[in-house]
Each structure stands twice: as C-alpha cells, then as structure tokens.
C-alpha cells in the first residue's frame, strides 16, 4: 500500500540527494466540480515521495483564494511541510513565472500531471516549460527505477499496459498520468499546519484567454459499434479487440533525423504544419 511507505525520505533532504520539484495544480472533482488536489498531480507527488533520498518541493502558480488554498493544502496533507505558491492573476500565462522559478531552483527532476483539471487543461504546460528551459520531457511516467550520475532510468507507460524503459539526462521534466501509482491519503492535520510560501511575481496576462468563454466539458456520447454477427464469439472478439488505428507505422532502429523526417511528413499530411 502506498500509505505504508514511510515519507521520511522526503523530509530528510540531504544536500547530496536528488532535488525533485512537483508542479501541482488545483483540481476539480468530475461530479461535483469541487476544488480538490488534481488526481494526476497527486500521483506525481506520490511518485516524488517514494523516491529514495529525494528532497521534494512543491510549486504552484495561480491565484490565491480560499477554495484554491484548500485544494493546494490537500497536497500538504500527504506529508509535505510547505508548498511554494507563485501568486498570479486569474488570466495570467503561468509559463514564464514557472520557468523563472524552476531556473532559479536547483531542481533536477520536475514531475507534474499530464493535464490540469481546470482552466485550459490542454496539457501543453509541461511542453512549453521544457521548451523554455531547454530540458528533455518524458510523458506518461510509470516509475522511476534508479537515478545515478545525472541520468535517470525510468519506465514509461504505453497504452494497454505496455512499459518502455528509458534513460534520460537530468534535469528533465516528466509528466505522470493515471498509470502511475495512486496518491496516498491526504491527512487533515498536516494539511492544515503546512506552510504556503507565497511569492509575488508579475503576471504575464494571456490576452487571448480573456476573450475565451469557458464552460464545463461534457462527456460526448460514444458512437456504438454495431457488430453484425450471429455468433457470440464474434461479438465478444469485436468487443474485446484492440481499436487498431490502421494507418500507423512503427519505426525501429532509425536515426533521429529519419524519425524527425517521418514525424514531419505525418504532420504535413494531417495538415498540422503547412
């Protein structure tokens, strides 16, 4: 159980240990829309807390109000003493502030959820941050296996339970999705006593965002796949079968240039690049 893992690792921040920063956001419960710790971000915190001899710090950029504060305190309840809160205006683009804070910190590994549960929730933040910092990014982190001499060996989660072992150079940004271990329980006492270290930063107002109209997403009905078959075996096979993309292409043992070429070609075909 994740709860049994002692979180003393996190507290004994040795200078020689790994500095891990987790970017956390205010989540939103899918049914009641109440503010809470975001599920994927909480999994990222959980992963950071289970790393051996890592010193974990939490970073959040956003506005500070009572509802948000309660949600952010949810992360403190996982056994963390303080969270750095960069105060930003509601319509600010948080990338510059986060990039500045991360550059100033000694973070070697930055963990975060794949996408936020509120706001744009485009999932683009980690990419923009990686670009701004010039760090590599890895998505869908399932586990960190070991960290030595400036590189980390990690498992990346692929669809259908597949895992891929990767070696990445630190510092790096890694995103965590629902394939990572679930977050431990947030305890009320530590959450209430934990410190919110508030830093004021100028907000880079996102002009475009101001013109947007934001409304809660609704689940779209899925088109039923009607299988015309009399035999139960066929229907079961159809229901359990992989949803094959069909047009995909797997490239093995190619040079980065060849890979980039293939991706470039695909993006042109799809009309993403012109």
């Amino acid at each position: 159980m994740p709860h049994d893992v002692s979180n003393t690792n996190a507290k004994s921040s040795t200078p020689s240990g790994l500095n891990v920063t987790v970017l956390v956001s205010v989540g939103r419960h899918p049914l009641t829309a109440r503010a809470r710790r975001s599920d994927q971000d909480a999994r990222a915190v959980e992963m950071a807390l289970t790393l051996q001899s890592a010193s974990v710090s939490l970073l959040h950029a956003g506005q500070q109000d009572s509802e948000n504060e309660e949600a952010i305190r949810g992360y403190l309840g996982m056994g963390i003493d303080s969270v750095d809160l960069i105060e930003q205006k509601p319509q600010a683009d948080v990338i510059p502030a986060l990039a500045k804070a991360l550059r100033a910190s000694a973070a070697q590994l930055v963990l975060t959820g794949t996408r936020a549960e509120t706001g744009e929730a485009s999932g683009i933040t980690p990419y923009l941050l990686a670009e701004a910092l010039g760090w590599p990014i890895i998505t869908g982190l399932a586990a960190v296996e070991k960290i030595e001499q400036g590189t980390a060996v990690v498992l990346q989660a692929l669809p259908r339970g597949k895992r891929r072992r990767l070696r990445i150079r630190l510092p790096a940004i890694a995103t965590v999705d629902s394939s990572a271990p679930p977050a431990r329980q947030s305890a009320f006492g530590p959450a209430k006593r934990g410190e919110l270290a508030i830093h004021l930063e100028p907000s880079a107002i996102d002009e475009a965002l101001g013109t947007w109209h934001i409304q809660p997403a609704r689940k779209r009905p899925k088109r039923l796949k009607i299988v015309k078959s009399s035999s139960a075996r066929d229907r079961f096979k159809a229901a359990a079968a992989k949803a094959d993309g069909g047009g995909g292409q797997t490239l093995n043992d190619v040079t980065p240039e060849q890979g980039a070429e293939a991706i470039f070609k695909l993006l042109k075909e799809e009309g993403v690049l012109r």
Partner: peptide
C-alpha cells in the same frame, strides 16, 4: 486518519468520496 493519513483499505477512498460528493460511494449527489 487525521495526522498519519493512514486509514486502511477502502478507508481513504470512502473519506475522499465523502469530502467530494457527500456520500461514501462517490455517487453524484
């Protein structure tokens, strides 16, 4: 529960549901 955050088995899930949905099963209120 309040200091260790260590309610066993389904405890944590039930408490999270109570906080988020006001019922232990996590149903839409």
């Amino acid at each position: 529960t309040l200091e260790h955050g260590n309610t066993p088995n389904k405890g944590a899930e039930v408490l999270d549901n109570l906080i988020a949905t006001d019922n232990p099963g996590g149903f839409d209120p």
